[in-house]
Each structure stands twice: as structure tokens, then as C-alpha cells.
Amino acid sequence: MPVVQRPALALMLRLAAAFALATLIMLVKYTAGTGVRFGEILFWRAAPTVPILALWLAAQGQLARLRSRRMSAHVRRAVLGMIGMVMTFGAPLLLPLAESTTLSFTTPLFAVVLSALILSERIGPWRWSAVAAGFAGIVIIAQPGHAHMPPFGTAVGLGAAFMVALISIQIRDLSRTEEPIAIVFWFSALSSVVFVLGLPFFSTAHSPFQWLLLITIGVLGCIAQLLLTAALRFGQVASVIVMDYSSLIWATLYGWLVWDQIPPATTWLGAPLIIGAGVLIAWREHHLSRIPSPLASVANE
């Protein structure tokens, strides 16, 4: 049964997801700073989602909602999702929070490039100009050769954005036949199996406060993923992704309150270019999606 599109709901869900994800990333960075190893944080980010969703569905007699005839697609989504998770949470450990968040905004730029290279989509001057402007913003922020943005951290941040572009397309495809809760459950279940194998190498004794942080990361990660998946179920990727830019507000605020970090002038110069490029791409793709004829799409591009 086709999913009814609800653009306003999708935008609100994505806005809530941006806040939840910004808070989650802050907690991951903070928790790592207390001495908890990154590998264990990844496990606790994924594992609590499995019993939370299973118990909730069981209490309502709705475990059948987890059934799927596309497990191979869930496995592919889990593989890409784990790579993306490592990069998404690894970048803030290597970079200031606001800068790593700004790099995540390059996802629409990679989506355009992937559309051209993999899907052979015709990309016109509007979107190629946006891509060029966005990558110019990256150069301004990164300032190649300066210590403020380590090259490896920058590469991880950009890699995370690239993976999000791939995963968003994958989730959109899965959402045609799978419920958001099933997509979230199977990703968490499959990734937890992989991450648990590393626990003997990463696990250490924790204080009650560190346990509280890890549990909060797991619960908040579940909420954020449900919100992200639901937003893609009710709205187009190009439309809802603009809400992600609100996370820069929270990242800047958290960076100031928790680490006393204020982004330098180069970040404020480069960020508008990246954000503007993403908004232009989203607007252009929304405009093209309303043109019924493929030939008209090319003509108007």
C-alpha cells in the first residue's frame, strides 16, 4: 500500500530528529572524554534499541510488524549504517562540534554527485553550481594546512556525509515496503551483533555516571533513528533534509556550554556557502520533481 505523503509532518519529524541527533553526538563526544572507549560507545548506541522496540511491540501484540521479506536489503543497510555510524560519531571526536556538524551538511552535495555518477542523472548548471559553492565552503572552513581542522578529521567528517547520502536513498527504498520501526529494529539488531564481538577488547569498568551516559546514548539513539526514518517515510529526501541545518545551532550551543569552544570566523564564512548550496539543491530537486515529463526536467534544468 503506497505511503501517504505528509510534508508538514515530515518536516517536523526531521526538525525533532536534528535536535535529537545533535544532542546524541554531543553526548558521544562527552562520554568519550570521560574515558569510555569508542568501540563500546558504538555498541551501547545500537544495542538498547533492540529490547526497547521488541518489548514495546510485544506489549501491544504487534511483533508481526518486524516481519520482512527483504532481509538482504536490511543487511546491506546495516553494513552501510555501521560504516556511517563510525564516521558520524568519529568526526566529533576529531574535530570541534560545530565544524564536524557543518561538514555533515555536505550530504546534499554528495547526493548530487552520486546521482550523476551512479544513476546517470542529468545534472544542470543550478545544482553543479551549488556543489561548487558547497565545496568552496569546505575549503574555507578546513583551511588546508592549518591545525584547526586536522586533515584526517576533515576526511572522516566528509566521509560521514557521503555515507548519509547513500543511506538516505537506501532507507527511502526500504520505506516503500517496511515500517520505520522495522527498519530501525533490524539495523540495530544486526549492527549490535557485530559491535558485541569487539566488547572484550573495548569494555572497561565504569562509574554510575558513565553508565547513565551510555544508557542515555542508547535510548536517544533509538528515538533519533525512529524520527529520521519516519521523516523519510512521509516526505521526500530533498524536502526534509533542509531541517538538518538547524543542528548547527545546537552544536554551536553545546560546543560553547560544554567545551567553551566558539567557531572561528572561517566557519561562519564557509557554513553559509554549504548551507546555501544544500538549500538550493533541495529547492531545485523539489522543483524538478513537480515536472511530469523527463524531457521537461532536462529542459528546465
Score class of each variant (00 low, 15 high):
residue 69 R to M: 03
residue 70 R to T: 10
residue 71 M to P: 08
residue 71 M to T: 09
residue 78 A to H: 03
residue 78 A to F: 05
residue 78 A to P: 03
residue 78 A to C: 12
residue 79 V to W: 04
residue 79 V to A: 13
residue 79 V to I: 15
residue 80 L to F: 09
residue 80 L to A: 07
residue 81 G to N: 05
residue 83 I to E: 07
residue 83 I to K: 01
residue 85 M to I: 12
residue 86 V to C: 15
residue 86 V to Y: 08
residue 87 M to K: 08
residue 89 F to K: 10
residue 90 G to P: 13
residue 92 P to G: 10
residue 96 P to F: 00
residue 96 P to I: 01
residue 100 S to E: 08
residue 101 T to G: 11
residue 106 T to Q: 14
residue 107 T to Q: 15
residue 107 T to H: 07
residue 107 T to R: 06
residue 109 L to A: 05
residue 109 L to T: 05
residue 109 L to V: 06
residue 110 F to Y: 10
residue 112 V to A: 01
residue 112 V to S: 01
residue 112 V to P: 00
residue 112 V to W: 00
residue 114 L to M: 10
residue 115 S to F: 00
residue 116 A to F: 00
residue 116 A to L: 01
residue 121 E to Y: 04
residue 121 E to R: 07
residue 121 E to K: 06
residue 122 R to D: 10
residue 122 R to F: 11
residue 123 I to S: 06
residue 127 R to D: 05
residue 128 W to Y: 12
residue 128 W to P: 02
residue 128 W to D: 13
residue 131 V to Y: 04
residue 134 G to P: 09
residue 134 G to C: 13
residue 134 G to H: 07
residue 136 A to H: 05
residue 138 I to G: 11
residue 138 I to R: 04
residue 141 I to M: 04
residue 141 I to Q: 00
residue 143 Q to R: 09
residue 145 G to W: 01
residue 147 A to T: 08
residue 147 A to L: 05
residue 147 A to G: 07
residue 148 H to Q: 13
residue 150 P to S: 12
residue 151 P to E: 10
residue 151 P to K: 02
residue 154 T to A: 14
residue 154 T to S: 06
residue 155 A to C: 12
residue 155 A to Q: 11
residue 155 A to V: 10
residue 156 V to T: 10
residue 158 L to T: 02
residue 160 A to H: 00
residue 160 A to L: 03
residue 162 F to W: 03
residue 163 M to G: 00
